[in-house]
Design a protein around this nucleic acid. Sequence first.
DNA 1: CAGTGAGCGAGCTTCCGCTTGACTT
Length: 791
Amino acid sequence: MIENLVIVESPAKAKTIEQFLGKGFTVKSSFGHIRDLEKKDLGVDIEHNFQPKYEISADKKMVVKELKALAKEAKTVWLASDEDREGEAIAWHLFEVLKLKPENTKRIVFHEITKDAILYAIAHPRNIDKNLVDAQQARRVLDRLVGFEVSPVLWKKVKPSLSAGRVQSVAVRLIVEREREINAFKEQAYYRVTGQFATAAHATLKAEVQERFASKEAALAYIEACRDAEFTVASVETKPTLRKPAPPFTTSTLQQEASRKLGLSVSQTMAVAQKLYEHGLITYMRTDSVNLSALAINTAKEVIRTTLGERYSQPRNYATKTKGAQEAHEAIRPTYMNRPTIEGDRNEQQLYELIYKRTLASQMANAELERTSIVISLSNRKEPFTAIGEVITFDGFLRVYMESYDDETEDEHTDLLQKKKKGDRLERQAITAQEQFTQHPPRYTEASLVKKMEALGIGRPSTYAPTITTIQNRGYIIRESREGVEKEVVTLTLKGKDIKSSVSKKTFGAEKKKLFPSDMGMVVTDFLSAHFKNIMDYNFTAEAEESLDRVAEGKEEWQKMIGEFYSPFHENVESTLKNSERNSGERLLGTDPASGEPVSVRIGRFGPIAQIGEGEQARYAGLQKGQLLETITLEEALALFKFPRKLGEYEGKEVSVAIGRFGPYIKHNNAFVSLKKGEDEPGTITLETAIARIEEKRESDRQKQIRVFDNGVQILNGRYGPYICFNKSNYKIPKTLKAEELTLEKCMEIIEKETAQKTKKSSAKTASASKTKAAASSKTTKRSTKKKTEK
DNA sequence: CAGTGAGCGAGCTTCCGCTTGACTT
């Protein structure tokens, strides 16, 4: 017999709370939702007022069984799921599934895991808020209806297995639209003029002309004027400014800062944070709140006062401004403010430190700065130079933490400026005009996409990372780095009385881990925008949230709300199925001058292809990485058909060059050799260079060989150390063995052992796949392989 | 690691939000 059973959502939370409550309380976790709409089928009975059809989720059967048994013998059951829409629904599902009785069931909530908060909650129980539960049911049903009615339209009209949803489709749209803005962007060259001026004590003062010069001639005219001008300080202005610390972390801001400062992907950040949470080092990591508990604020104050002094302390409460925030938890903060560092791997330590400093800084005094701007006029032109510098007069929170931004600009931290006075004459040193280019809007990173989604109220802290993974797995978007292009940049320099013009090379437009749309992403976005305008609207979620709020307040019945959405929506689905054209993103580019046949591009079965001619005689070529259906030109498409290009023969076998999935390569006698980046061009490479590349590859392959046995077994040196290669498969060498000392017998033993293991595993996988669902298992394998590569 | 490119049509795919492990190269 147990006295009290408390059910929370997270097992880590359960452990902590059990300690606070002590004897007489058993604390268990539901591991989130225990019940959901039927996995197969729609799971909603449209005919009967949208009655949801719930089932216990497969992975929760055991949890439910255990909770049921405990609930049966408990005198009182305390449902302590989070205080938000989902949490309320979890409490209600538990109540229903565990067959609890109203007289011995109590609903309690707390926003922070502190002893006081828990005890207060126990002393102030309430009933399940059925209106809030209904709002969750409406949210759930809405998402199911949208997802499960629109996705099949895509299967018919675009490609099987595609998906659409309230959140993911809009996230893809953001990336597609940004890419189109970038394509439409017309880059412009301009000149920026900077100058150096001598001051006392051999220091130089750097200043810049605010005006941009549209052409080389205009810049030259200005510099020529500088040659003969006199420079005078026209004004010096010093203004004190304040800088405030950023609020403590939410999921979204943590993901952004971890990406900028530590280079972690959104899902890596969450995995590391999860570890910290499980070890009791930080509070819950999926939160939209910037609120800190009174306990946290007080201990932070203590730490700051004792280590940095009274002046650095400034306790603050932050208010959450995010649209649709539900604030069931605290902000993400260290559990103990007196622990600046922790044990753990590199990522754990760094992420913890980031959280620690951000939290501490949020409770610290403003930084005080003096911002000085000085204007330098010249005697013969009206565009002056200006120099801006900041001096920190009191560092405040900056002593601990500085927030970063995506577009950081350099600032001059100099007090040189302040020493200048109006009317001072300045001695001109070098003046430079350098050619610049206007920049297109930036592509999204994972983290900046999360920021945008949060601003639009789309998605929740628990779904940001999975959503980004989903749209990548579906092939709508890809995250990659691209090299920039080299451009010639003109620089005009005035030194003494000489003006020199020079040309240097600079790289522009390099992208690091940015999100690009795929052709499929663009085609699907266009299709959905054309036929499901309201769902693709950036305000769709925000408006739905307003209706959900009315349901939560008891002002509207949830079925009525869903009904009003569903009838026009469903009609739209039907008419789209009937009337819309199949969409393959086809574009006619023109005619092939050689054959007179039409040239077009579209999405084929294996991806985007170019096509010359029609019917039986049509010729096909796959598009290259980075080429889009939307932007490829006739010339670029025709160039794809120039491969494979025969170069000649070597050792009696044909040598040809072609372009594959991984870029251009040379093929010779069933061997593949990549072209050398930056040196070889697939269109112009000669037989001689190709042979040289083939020989280079052979040599490097020989370098890799540690041992070769007669029957084809090889021991090779790879990226991750030595391994065995046999029949085109690779085998891991156990760490206990030395690669150089392996005998053929030993190798064969390893090969046999690993093949046996592999077949066993793959058969086990198919068995479980047939039970649960193939998609689920393939998804998990995909995710795990990804994890590996990221490590 | 590596050029492909049709279509008989079984049976399948798909959503968003709560939670953790269990999976591998």
